[in-house]
Design a protein around this nucleic acid. Structure first.
Lengths: 250, 250
DNA sequence: TGCTTATGAATGATTATGATTGATTTTGGA
DNA sequence: TCCAAAATCAATCATAATCATTCATAAGCA
C-alpha cells in the first residue's frame, strides 16, 4: 500500500468514526506499527488529526468546550510542575496576586497551606480559591467570556487599592527581542498594573511559549523573573540578558 | 477503548443526566474502577466536572449553593416561580443588578433572551451568566466563602461606577415593623448601595421569609417593590403600608 | 555506484491500566 | 444519638500497552 493511500485511508476512517486506534490500522493496512506511527505523526504536523495515546482523533473536536478547557489540557503536567515550583516562592501569610490563566490556576493547590490572601482577576480561580478555603479578593470588572478573565476600567481601578507581596502572571509568548506578549490588550493592561503594585513579579510559561511572538501586545515588565520548564541551556543565555530565568527541573 | 473516547463518553453522559455514578461507568465502559477514577480526577482538574462521593456531577452546580443541598433545593419550585415573575420586569437591553443569592440565580434563564447587561456581586451568578452568554460585570471585592458573595470596600467602590435600570435583591427576612433584614452587615451594605444606584428595585422572597426577623441587619430601602409567593391576603395588608407588594400566582 | 527515501525490527523509556491495600465516608440499625 | 457494616476512596505497585528513537535493510533513481 502506498504512503498516500494509507494517509487517505486513515483520514477517511477518522471522518467516519471520529477516532482511530493504531492497532486497528496495523491489522487493516498490513503496514508495520512504525510506519503507521510515522503516518500519524506526519498527518498531525499537517493539522489533519491529533494524536492521542493509542491512536488519533479528529483535531479541535472539543472546540465546543470553552476555549479555556482546551488550553488547560495542553501541557497540563508541565503546568503543574511550573505551578508547584512557583508556589514555593510564596511565604506564610503573603498577599498574592494570581493572574487569570490555567497555570496560575494550578498553583492554588500548592499555596493553600500557606494561608495566603489572594487577589485574582480570574473567574475560575475565584471559584477554585473559594473551594480551597483561601481568603479571596476578586478585582471585578467586565468578564471576558473566552478566558474567564475580568478586565477593563473596573478591574484596573480595583487593582489600585491593593499591594502584593508577590505576583504571578501568565503570558502567551516570550521572545528575547520583544519580551513578553499576550494577545489581548485589555488583559495586558491588567497584568502590567498588577505587576506595578507588587514587590516581586514572576512570569509563568511552559516551553511552548518560548521564542514565540504571535499577533500580540507587548507587556513591558521590569524586574520580573521568568519561570519556565525544560528549555535548553543555550536558549536560556539569551533570556538572561533581559530577565532572571528560573528553570523547573523534572 | 481509547482514553479520549472514555472521557467523551463520560462528559456526554454528564450532559444528559447531569450526574454519573462510577459503578455505572465501570459496567458500560469495560474499564476498571481505577482507570475510571483516574479519568474522573483528570476531567475534574480540567474543570469539566466535579467529583462527588460515588461519581461526578456537572461543575458549578453545587457551588451555587453554599454548603447544604438543603438550602438550594428548599423551596426551589417557589424560587423558580418568583424568579420567572421577577424576570418579566426586565426589558430588552436593560442594565440589571443581580444580588448574590439562589433566587436571583434562577432569574438568569429567564432574562437571557432580553440581551441584558448584568452586574452582580455573586460568584455563582458570574459563572452562570458567563455560561448563558450574557454580558457580565462583577463588582469584585472580598469573597464570602459561605454565600459566594463579594462584599466590602472593593464591592462598594465598584458599585459607585454603575447605574442600573433595574435591581433585584434577595433578603433573609421581611417584617411589617422592621422592614427587610439580612444576617450579614457587609452584604446589607452592598444591597443598599446597589439599590441606591437603581431606577427601580425589587426584593425577592419566598413565603418562608415573611414575618421573619432573625439576628439581622435592617436594610432601609425606599421605593422597593416586594415580590413574594403564596402569602395570605390578610398578611399582605400589613405590608402594603410599607411597600408595593406583588404576589406570584401559581 | 552513490544517494535518498521508505520501511520494519529492536531498544529502552514512557504511559495507561488493573489489582491490592488500608483509610475514609456513607448508610442503616440499635 | 452512636456504632458497625458496606461502599467508596486515595495511594501504591506490577504489568501491559504504547511510545520515540535508533539502526539496518530494501527499493527507487540519477
Amino acid at each position: 500500500m502506498l504512503t498516500n493511500e494509507r494517509h487517505d485511508y486513515i483520514l477517511r476512517m477518522l471522518e467516519e468514526k471520529k477516532t482511530v486506534k493504531l492497532q486497528d490500522l496495523v491489522e487493516v493496512t498490513d503496514a508495520s506499527e512504525s510506519t503507521l506511527r510515522r503516518d500519524l505523526t506526519e498527518l498531525e504536523s499537517m493539522g489533519k488529526l491529533e494524536r492521542v495515546f493509542g491512536g488519533a482523533v479528529l483535531p479541535g473536536r472539543n472546540l465546543q468546550e470553552p476555549s479555556m478547557d482546551d488550553k488547560s489540557t495542553r501541557n497540563l503536567k508541565e503546568k503543574k510542575s511550573i505551578a508547584e515550583y512557583a508556589a514555593s516562592f510564596v511565604q506564610e501569610g503573603d498577599s498574592v496576586f494570581l493572574d487569570a490563566g490555567t497555570t496560575t490556576l494550578q498553583m492554588i493547590t500548592f499555596i493553600k497551606d500557606k494561608n495566603p490572601v489572594v487577589v485574582t482577576n480570574g473567574l475560575p480561580l475565584a471559584v477554585a480559591l473559594n473551594e480551597a478555603g483561601i481568603t479571596t479578593y476578586l478585582t471585578g470588572g467586565m468578564l471576558k467570556p473566552r478566558t474567564g478573565a475580568f478586565v477593563g476600567a473596573g478591574a484596573l481601578a480595583a487593582l489600585g487599592a491593593y499591594h502584593f507581596d508577590i505576583c504571578f502572571l501568565g503570558v502567551n509568548g516570550i521572545h528575547a527581542d520583544y519580551g513578553y506578549t499576550t494577545p489581548d490588550p485589555e488583559e495586558a493592561a491588567v497584568k502590567k498594573k498588577a505587576a506595578s503594585h507588587a514587590r516581586k513579579t514572576y512570569i509563568l510559561a511552559d516551553h511552548s511559549k518560548v521564542n514565540k511572538v504571535s499577533f500580540a501586545t507587548i507587556i513591558n515588565l521590569q524586574d520580573a523573573a521568568l519561570i519556565v520548564d525544560g528549555v535548553p541551556a543555550e536558549t536560556l543565555q539569551e533570556y538572561n540578558k533581559i530577565t532572571t530565568v528560573k528553570v523547573v527541573e523534572k
